[in-house]
């Protein structure tokens, strides 16, 4: 068993990403485009079997609405910020842990630079009282409580 990251995003227009884009621009964060998807950290044997299992799980995945990928890297890529909710005190974590991945693009169409991602995280995408952020060069995923 090893840890995989399952990514599930919307095929249909993502109103939340659009709203985030408008809000970030209003805050003066220089982004051209925003994408968003859910990530689930899961333990599984192999990636193909995991893909099949998630694809048939109606609670997670609706093929007319979602796309689904199993990620190779367990770290945010360029332009990405991964936001993980902090567990409530005294609550056992479930087997799968959900986080939200944002991918920000600069006006040249390339992933936004690190400082832009940092600004977006600090100004809007993460409330440090209840969430922790990971992006290139910052942050490790929060430890699951023992």
């Amino acid at each position: 068993m090893s840890e995989f990251i399952v990514a599930i995003g919307l095929k249909i227009p993502d109103n939340t990403a659009q709203t985030a884009l408008v809000a970030l621009r209003r805050l003066g964060v220089a982004v051209e485009w925003v994408e968003r998807c859910d990530l689930w950290r899961v333990e599984a044997g192999d990636s193909a079997a995991l893909h099949a299992r998630v694809a048939s799980d109606e609670t997670l995945f609706n093929p007319s609405k979602h796309w689904l990928r199993i990620l190779d890297a367990a770290e945010p890529g360029p332009g990405e910020a991964w936001i993980t909710p902090l567990p409530a005190p005294g609550c056992a974590e479930g087997r799968a842990r959900r986080l939200v991945a944002w991918r920000l693009f600069a006006s040249d169409g390339r992933p936004a630079p690190r400082e832009t991602v940092a600004a977006a995280v600090e100004r809007l995408l993460c409330n440090p009282a209840i969430e922790c952020a990971q992006y290139q060069g910052k942050g490790a995923p929060p430890e699951a409580p023992k």
């Binding site: 109103n15 939340t16 709203t19 809000a23 209003r26 995408l125 969430e131």
Partner: peptide, 14 residues
């Protein structure tokens, strides 16, 4: 407000 997009209250706060 704003469908609680991103987090409850987050977009409205801005």
């Amino acid at each position: 407000a704003y469908e609680d997009r991103i987090r409850a209250g987050a977009i409205a706060a801005h």
